[in-house]
Amino acid sequence: MAEHFHFSGQIPPEYAAWRLDQALAELLPEHSRARLQAWIKSGHLTLNGQTCRPKDKVRFGDQIDLDITLTPQVVHDAQAIELDIVYEDEDILVLNKAAGLVVHPAAGHASGTLLNALLHQCPQLDTVPRAGIVHRLDKDTSGLMVVAKHVRAQTHLVEQLQARTMKREYYALVYGSLISGGTVDAPIGRHPQQRKKMAVVAQGKPARTHYRVLERFAAHTWVKCQLESGRTHQIRVHMAHVHHPLIGDPLYLGRLKLPAGASCALKEHLRTFPRQALHAFQLGLIHPRTGEMCSWQAPMPEDMQLLLAALRQG
């Protein structure tokens, strides 16, 4: 199934003097740079009405026009994997991702992912970059995600992410008894020594997380976190950075901490909780077709509810 896609826009001032393919990768992040380069070379994309090369430098105000017919590009298999769909219409699909479900195929996870499930749920997604996936959740983070069912919707949603108008709120259970909420404003990049980890680093990308205390316990806190940016592992990295790592986090917790005076039941929950205690409970966005503000919520999953009950009992 083919889909026609048209994009028209101007180069913003912050991309002036960049290579054309670099600027396009920022303007159309739902498409790979290789794909954008191929469109430039084939003449489907023009700069100020003229054909161009990927390496051509752009100026502020340059006019970009892209007109292309998208053909099936997803090479992954469709798989009948059960999904918890919260909302669906002709433009978007909102789902409550289960902990343990990988979002996109990668090394070690060639199948059995959310992408494979989406191709089964909506076969037309084979023409949409990343099968319509707009943002990701870590494998062991549960909660709400939005999927675009066509490229126009995907472009609109990506623009919302860039403009920070998409609202994403999370429940997290962290170590330490926080007195009040706050904001972590610290750049995140790849850890300089441990490549599987992210870290707060001076040369990282800007990242900001707001957190608010919902309930305080003897040695732990239930917090609500809101993202302004969406960096890899952002909440996990930021909360660890302020010395309040998430319960169960396999990368950022460090040595297991069992508080003095905790009951045997709570200690057992802390020892055995199998993932970072993080759940994306609320998602708000502007609908790409109607322009209306929409919002959805997903209740805390059972494993986190049981952990929360154990924390309350002490």
Rank of each mutant, 00 (worst) to 15 (best):
R152K: 07
S177Q: 14
Y211N: 09
T165F: 05
K224T: 04
S142D: 05
K149N: 04
T209Q: 05
A153M: 10
K139H: 13
G182W: 05
T209M: 12
P206I: 01
H220R: 09
I188V: 12
L178V: 03
E215G: 07
F217M: 11
V147D: 13
V184L: 06
P129W: 05
A199K: 15
R136A: 10
A172D: 09
Y211D: 05
G189V: 07
I133P: 03
R164K: 15
A148S: 11
R136P: 08
K167R: 12
Y175N: 06
F217L: 04
E215I: 06
A172N: 13
E215V: 04
G176E: 09
R152S: 10
K149V: 08
S142N: 00
K196T: 02
S177E: 14
A218H: 15
H210G: 03
V147C: 06
V200K: 01
L161G: 00
V151D: 10
K197Q: 14
G143N: 08
A163D: 14
K205E: 12
V200S: 01
D185F: 07
V184H: 04
D138N: 08
S180I: 06
Q203D: 15
A207K: 01
V223H: 00
W222Q: 14
V151G: 00
A202Y: 01
K224W: 08
H150Q: 14
R208I: 06
T141A: 12
H210D: 11
K224M: 12
V146R: 02
L137A: 02
V146E: 00
V174C: 13
L144M: 04
V213I: 15
H135G: 00
H156G: 09
P192M: 01
V146L: 04
G204P: 12
L173W: 07
R208L: 14
K139Y: 02
R212L: 06
V213M: 04
Q193W: 03
Q193E: 13
P206G: 00
W222C: 13
G143Y: 09
H210L: 13
